[in-house]
Design a protein around this nucleic acid. Sequence first.
DNA 1: TCAATACTTTAGAATTAATATAATGTATTA
DNA 2: TAATACATTATATTAATTCTAAAGTATTGA
Lengths: 142, 142
Amino acid sequence: MTYVDQYIDKLRKSGLRPTKQRIKICEVLFNAEKTFHFTIKELVKIIENQANIKVSLATVYNTVHAFIKKGYLKEIPLNASQSYYDTNVTHHHHFFDEEENKLIDINQEDVDDINIKRTIPGKKIRSVEFIAKIVSDNQSQK
Amino acid sequence: MTYVDQYIDKLRKSGLRPTKQRIKICEVLFNAEKTFHFTIKELVKIIENQANIKVSLATVYNTVHAFIKKGYLKEIPLNASQSYYDTNVTHHHHFFDEEENKLIDINQEDVDDINIKRTIPGKKIRSVEFIAKIVSDNQSQK
DNA sequence: TCAATACTTTAGAATTAATATAATGTATTA
DNA sequence: TAATACATTATATTAATTCTAAAGTATTGA
């Protein structure tokens, strides 16, 4: 099974036809050595730089949202003017470097289980994810 | 020291002159029996309902942001099309009810300390806050 | 107290991310 | 391969937020 076949499979499972544009989007998203974080605008730029295929914003939005719905991408709960997405769909957390405006993954195994001693009647927890905000540690200032 | 004096103090400490509009905003935000979550639009509506003072969106935005900068309000890191704010500025967490689109506070004492077994060189953690997404617990479906 | 000054308020305009639209194009199907 | 259904795109729209500039108000110092 080639990479492209995998992309086609992902697209079909997301209810999307495999088109030139969508396969290109998959190449950028799922062929990366590492997982990464991105905004829609950034994704469009990467595609423009890597290929001579033109992809409209609307297509990228639609495809990204279909992948999120299917669980192939995740939205990062960061209160920002634009949405951030993550190719790492495992249950994990984030550092957010407030000085560099950068997100860094924290894998679940790097965190002890979070124990919430409180419940809401009739409700169950579906997921727990945190953002740890980090800043420069200038010890000299202490 | 009257309530209004406290509002004037908060405003001055935030670098703002105490005006009619801003004192009204303070009354809504800081006179509540309980802490609460709000969007800018909701805050404008509450003010309209409680007083015959007219306050423009711009004034509310400016004042809320000055209070956040000073630490009198907090922004809730929820990835939504509008920003959510919190009058509870203690270190705490949230349930987010995905069905009702509602936030519920989780006090720090209701959560065991979060232990992150990983550090970023030269950086220190400033805060750790999580969102626990909750949904209906239909046990019959199991 | 009272002008001069500096900051505020406001309506409306501008900006920006995100979504909708509808005409043209392409994958699928039988 | 033709008919159909779905995609793509440029453009328009929407909605939250920010900006602007004119008119208003708090502050300051004489």
